[in-house]
Amino acid sequence: MSDPIETAIFEKLSRIDPKGDNGKSIEPSDVAKDLQPEQWQRMLPKVRAVALGLMRQGKLTITKKGKAIDPNAMKGVVRLRLPTAEEAAAAKAALPPVTDEDDGDFA
């Protein structure tokens, strides 16, 4: 986890929900404000993009009005929280399978 935005998201979540089982959430703007207090509006699209990537990996859930949203329909005011076991499993199942066919040879 070397990405500073990713680190900031998980640090903020761990502060409000240390065990990760209460379903508490944060706003992407809070993360942006932590990272760049003076120009947080410029940071917000980057935070949302990282959150979207984390959701697709099953590491984060993006919610709207308390319900998980489709990552392709992310618009408006959203919140970030740690995923339930079911949400993480569904996200990982949706990822394309990794194969051993690509051995790096370019013929």
Score class of each variant (00 low, 15 high):
S14A: 15
S2Y: 08
Q39Y: 06
M43E: 03
D21W: 10
T84D: 07
N22D: 08
G76I: 10
R42V: 07
E11I: 06
D103Q: 05
A89G: 09
L52Q: 13
K12M: 15
G20Q: 00
D103G: 13
G76W: 09
P4L: 05
K24C: 04
M1S: 13
E6G: 02
K46R: 14
S2P: 05
T63F: 00
L52V: 08
F106Q: 02
L44T: 01
Q39P: 00
R79S: 15
L54T: 00
I16H: 02
R42M: 10
K64G: 09
D30H: 11
F10D: 01
K12F: 14
V98A: 12
P18E: 11
F10K: 04
A91Q: 03
T99D: 13
D102C: 06
P37R: 03
K67R: 14
D21S: 09
K24S: 05
G23Y: 03
L95D: 00
N72M: 14
T84F: 12
L60P: 03
V78W: 07
D21E: 12
L95K: 15
V77L: 13
I26L: 11
L60Y: 04
Q36L: 09
K59S: 14
D34E: 14
D17I: 06
R42T: 10
A32T: 03
D105M: 12
K46G: 00
I9V: 04
D103P: 02
R56P: 05
P97M: 07
R81L: 08
D34Q: 12
K65L: 06
P97K: 10
G20A: 05
P18K: 01
L44R: 01
I5W: 00
P18C: 08
V98Y: 02
V50I: 07
K24P: 02
A94T: 04
P18W: 04
E87A: 11
V78L: 09
P37W: 04
N22Q: 13
M74H: 09
E6A: 07
G53P: 04
A32R: 00
E101K: 10
G66K: 15
M55H: 03
E27M: 06
K12H: 14
P83W: 06
K75A: 15
